[in-house]
Design a protein around this nucleic acid. Sequence first.
RNA 1: CGGAGCGUGGCGCAGUCUGGUAGCGCAUUAGACUGGGGGUCUAAGGGUCGCAGGUUCGAAUCCUGUCGCUCCGACCA
Length: 437
Amino acid sequence: MRLSRYFLPVLKETPGDAQVISHQLMLRAGMIRQTAAGIYAWLPLGQRVLQKITQIVREEQDRAGAIEVLMPTIQASDLWKQSGRYDAYGPEMLRITDRHDREMLFSPTAEELFTVIFQNGARSYRDCPRNLYQIQWKFRDEVRPRFGVLRGREFLMKDAYSFDLDFAAARHSYNRMFLAYLRTFARMGVHAIPMRADTGPIGGDLSHEFIVLAPTGESDVFYHENWEKGRDTSAVDADDAAGLATWIDALNADYAATDEMRDLAAEAATGPALKQSKGIEVGQVFYFGDKYTKAMGVTVSGPDGAAVTPLMGSYGIGVSRLVGAIIEASHDKDGIIWPEAVAPYKVALINIRADDAACVAAADKLYAELTHAGVEVLYDDRDERGGAKFATADLIGLPWQLVIGPKGVAAGTVELKRRGGDKLEMTAENAFARLTA
RNA sequence: CGGAGCGUGGCGCAGUCUGGUAGCGCAUUAGACUGGGGGUCUAAGGGUCGCAGGUUCGAAUCCUGUCGCUCCGACCA
């Protein structure tokens, strides 16, 4: 993409409304604009990051055996009355009346709908286990939205719902998602720690929150220092129920809990290895058994013909929140530093002399070659000074900066640098090789 | 929802106390110079001061109401 033809409204100054760094940088980098309290328009750069995150989530859900669907954002109230949550959810649920005075709502989560959709398509024990998921906008009418996309009212969430015949199978479904979440966040370059968590209004008795450590986080968290290093999931076999359970139990032997779930005895046992921090919740997994299937009257026929009420779990990832969380965890004074997997473009190609024919030719050539090779390049071909281009590139945080200038062109070299790292001079061919490796 | 604050060109702000017909920086447009980390000069365009009502000869400024946004707290993917 040529920047001269793009829509990238960057700001030199920080808008006064933005308090936390991720919100400030998202506004300055032209990723989002606020349209109402807790509601944001996603501009091209922000939309690309959202898409990158969405795709990683999707691939890992698919890999874990979950099946993608898409539910409506607007739902009728009757299902929610059936489960009892129409009243229980309270004012956080945005209620809407249609032209016929029917009570509708903007879905804050979708246990009820998934449950009846499952029932509608499932008849026998052969239809379990199943895990259905969607990546869809949700709306929760927060009393006090804040921190940009970290606590918006409208947010993009992946929500998955598993259906199993017995507890052992349900627990395995839970563990599969647990593993999938570790893999998902690791792929994004995010270190998320699973912590024992409260189940809240979703209900149930087993839950973990996946927390990204960041000083601006809203949750107080406590964990064993072992959690500060990443975990290798490559050898774990998600289909081996016993092996997976053992592996997860071993992980969870290291203490990690949110404020509401603190276990002072366990903390004392952890001793000096106990760490305290602030964190941002980017995902949560729940097991809640037959809470919804029972309320909604869902059954399947067992092998013996008797009706079985499936047991459920639900699994959320805050996709739009992750955009903010990643920035909170990865930025410097000049701007965002995107992990490569979620960067809106891989390379900022900077021609620092748009008035120099040789530079333009060299930059155009590299742009064409890289684009042809499938590398996502944002080509700053504007007639701006070098300084302005560097500042923009640093602000939007693309992982690589490829700089074309008159000195280099004369010497037959370009400069390649990692965002925030050192410049390396090399031939255009070598730069191309590095970026396509 | 309790407490606090703020709405003035696209963005950041001053002006409000002590009413007299709107100002600064950045951005934008044009031209020239410049050209390796947000350049310089010249010129230009753009706001009726959130909205409504009131007081006054006169309101961004005072009063009343209202809408919106932000922060602290309670709450929360």
